[in-house]
Design a protein around this nucleic acid. Structure first.
Lengths: 374, 374
DNA sequence: TTGTAGGCGTTATCAG
DNA sequence: CTGATAACGCCTACAA
């Protein structure tokens, strides 16, 4: 019995490792082994210990474990606080998937924000120094991103959702193959009978945008239907974008379709079409990217990123690093999937009519319940 | 010198309290006091200690502190993993604000998800038992919510974004005054010259929905322009909603306006209007609720919730509870604000035209930077 | 296979 | 106001 006898145990204190050891009539070491080194203890005693663990509802104190092991059991993720959430920003869904994946690896996710977007390191350093986290999950990586270099220099474990551009030697990243997603969209449209297929994207220069556009180029070229004139890459300005869309719609014409680099762009097209009395799907096919809520709500076919898979993969790198498993020899690109909806349904009237069957069917909705559509 | 001499300090270890004490030639206790009990130490030594703290870049190990104090320095927040994010769900923005507010109180936010929506307690219990968190921030409270009662019974600190319905004695919650928000919307529309003012909402029965509808009733009644016939509360079904909207638009007529219980509903109206060749703003005014990205993007006037303020207030309850400050005698309702955009601008053509001046101005955009509009 | 001893870095208690 | 002593609960040697 330790000095605990002096401290009166008031209401509902938690059982500790010692309590379990006492109850199971073994040393506290054995209990620890049952948890961390199963195999180093005989099945008989292990069973006895487990029984007591359950009976006493013992849970290892993670603060103590963290202190002893000199490493936290949590990962940090920087939230983009530099603006309200932007359309199609899948960061939020990713966070959910990351949280779920972390749970499976007995890790936790700690959110944080940096004050100065250009000087994020101090916050990373603080979290590490205080032993709140043992590593990080990066998102929104960019060119001249100071984070990867700093983390590597300090031997901090981290992974990245999004390619780490400046450091080819770093391979623990995963990203979505945007080009493939757009290409799938093109093929889906062609299979649905639309032609020709135009492209609506962003101005050249951004890696993501260029990647997506390349998917349109390659897919249409493969199919022998490439026409360089059928694209628009307007600046970030609604009126200008709307004008570009109007022009593109005209060139594509009824029976044709447009793949867009984002749901936002697709919705601009959506609006413009309705202005002109054209029916998305019926008259002209339309595909967005990111499968946002709005796409689901309004029947826009969209390209969906496999966020759960990505989150799981990334965390495997992070926790597996200890167990010998290391990151792959190069970053991984995940294939997104086209979620078909009314906007690529030729026969759809896209009008108020009861959704008979697959019209509103949504594969992603399988996890949905609850009804507050706020 | 402790037994540390036996352990060779390899690369870049962090300075500990002892290191600082040694350097400042005081006891480690004094260093601890400088941090936690300022005032119990003389200014002279305090300065000396602080100097060494800075010089050695000392940061208290939070795991050790947590262990010693038997309380974590983090709060848990349950993410809704029961479906992809829904339109207008402001949970994500709230999380960002919460993270920022927590930073100011030297706390951290830990996300988690529950496997079974109806049986969430076990996860709350686990987080508490492992001392990962010392309290919780509840969201999406509902009737027959098992969480508040359980947390109270176990004397776990928690606050709630959203009223806790089942327990009038619990007052540490904050919510948005939806009725006031809608009422403000009505007054804004009237001030802009629109009449009459219709309402588009959800079927009766939900507290949030009923609250918002009441704002329309009271505001129009106050202004002497109430007409019970000018409302629609369609079910959650796009075609049905569209039909209802068409009917409502007809009754309201050109020059009138509609306040909506959500941006989603507003967008349905948006679409229907364009189908019929009506211009939002120019012909009929339109206001949404939640100020989502889409509202910002497409010029929809919307009611914005003061999430930052709410997050700060809630965390004050939680951390202030120790310092004597307790929750108020009753929950707090925050007033949202109308963010005017083109959809309530009579003179707007809502057409492709260069955004001369305030057309795209967005108060919320002041914190925006970066340009990936994905 | 099991038990013993010690310390991770911090703060609380109590004596000077 | 300062300094010594004792835990917080766990894990990692090492010895039996």
């Amino acid at each position: 019995m330790t000095g605990r006898t002096t401290v009166s145990r008031e209401r509902a204190e938690r059982a500790t490792l010692v309590d379990v050891a006492l109850a199971a009539q073994v040393s506290r070491q054995t209990v620890s082994n049952v948890l961390n080194n199963p195999g180093k203890v005989s099945p008989a005693t292990a069973a006895k210990v487990r029984f007591e663990i359950d009976r006493l509802n013992f849970r290892p104190n993670l603060a103590a474990r963290s202190l002893r092991q000199r490493k936290a059991n949590a990962l940090g993720i920087e939230l983009n606080a530099t603006g309200r959430h932007r359309l199609g920003n899948i960061q939020d869904s990713f966070l959910v998937e990351l949280t779920v994946a972390a749970r499976e690896q007995d890790a936790h996710i700690i959110t944080f924000a940096v004050e100065d977007y250009l000087e994020p390191i101090s916050e990373y350093e603080r979290l590490l120094a205080t032993q709140m986290v043992s590593g990080f999950v990066l998102t929104n990586t960019r060119h001249d991103d100071p984070r990867p270099a700093w983390l590597r220099a300090h031997e901090v474990p981290f992974v990245s959702f999004g390619q780490v551009w400046d450091d080819p030697a770093f391979t623990a990243w995963a990203d979505v193959d945007g080009g493939s997603g757009i290409a799938q969209g093109v093929r889906h449209l062609v299979a649905q009978g639309y032609a020709p297929i135009g492209y609506l994207g962003w101005p050249p220069g951004s890696p993501v945008g260029d990647d997506r556009r390349s998917g349109w180029v390659s897919a249409t070229t493969d199919l022998g239907i490439h026409d360089p004139a059928l694209q628009e890459v307007p600046p970030q300005d609604l009126p200008a974008a709307a004008a570009a869309v109007r022009s593109l719609l005209e060139r594509v014409g009824n029976g044709g379709a447009i793949v867009c680099a984002s749901d936002t762009l697709a919705f601009i097209a959506f609006q413009v079409m309705r202005d002109q009395g054209q029916r998305p799907g019926t008259d002209i096919g339309l595909i967005g990217f990111d499968d946002t809520d709005f796409a689901q709500e309004f029947g826009l076919t969209s390209v969906q990123q496999p966020l759960a898979e990505i989150a799981q993969t990334l965390l495997t790198y992070l926790t597996g690093a200890e167990s010998g498993a290391v990151a792959p020899s190069r970053g991984v690109l995940f294939d997104p999937a086209v979620i078909p909806r009314r906007s690529t349904d030729h026969r759809s009237t896209d009008r108020a009519r009861p959704a008979h069957k697959p019209v509103t069917t949504d594969p992603a909705g399988s996890r949905t319940q609850d009804g507050d559509s706020s």
